[in-house]
């Protein structure tokens, strides 16, 4: 049984890394080179939140850190800062997985929006304190609604394409109840 679980773990880790790589590479396609276009959704954040809500046990924290750091390097962001925030957001979600199992489906985009606003604010504040040149806060926050709009697509892909479903809500009390 452990072999099966290990197999599943490795496979799903590879799936996460592959999906993330595809999302970053799509962003890197030299298509919209005219400056001042529409903001594009941050698909990587959608992927992280959707996966963490569904199966946090299949997404180890070091993998999240590695993938987001790689994305930072690829996407010309200050390396490490956004990755650290993403890891924190992911662990925050992992910590609340029990409560999230019972949350309605509609709450997920709201959760993503709240998390992302907090992350953008923190990112902006740190860069502002360290006097790094950055775009205006409003411009950065514009990404949030676009990302929320893209969330259902990513969530559906995970749920239907990869078969990642939330664990059923646990009836009863205490940790032992989950093992029933």
């Amino acid at each position: 049984m452990t072999e099966v679980r290990l197999h599943r773990r490795v496979l799903s880790g590879a799936a996460f890394a592959g999906l993330a790589a595809a999302m970053v590479l799509v962003k890197l396609l030299p298509l919209g080179l005219n400056a001042g276009g529409w903001p594009v959704p941050d698909l990587l954040m959608c992927l992280l939140v959707a996966w963490m809500i569904r199966r946090p046990d299949l997404l180890p924290m070091p993998l999240v850190a590695a993938v987001f750091l790689w994305a930072d390097l690829m996407l010309m962001r200050p390396p490490g800062l956004w990755a650290a925030l993403a890891v924190l957001a992911g662990e925050w979600l992992r910590h609340r997985q029990r409560a999230l199992r019972a949350a309605p489906l509609v709450a997920e985009p709201g959760l993503l929006a709240a998390l992302m606003v907090a992350m953008v604010l923190a990112h902006w504040a740190v860069l502002a304190v360290l006097f790094v040149d950055q775009p205006r806060l409003g411009q950065q926050l514009l990404q949030v609604p676009v990302t929320v709009l893209a969330y259902p697509v990513v969530a559906a892909l995970l749920q239907l394409g990869l078969g990642l479903r939330r664990h059923p809500v646990i009836e009863g009390f205490g940790r032992r109840a989950a093992r029933a």
Binding site: V24, K27, L29, P30, L33, L75, M76, R77, Q134, Q139
Partner: peptide, 15 residues
């Protein structure tokens, strides 16, 4: 030839 762009809406560069 152009391989990729910056991938960020706030940076304008190509590879």
């Amino acid at each position: 030839s152009v391989l990729a762009d910056s991938g960020s809406p706030f940076r304008q560069s190509v590879l």
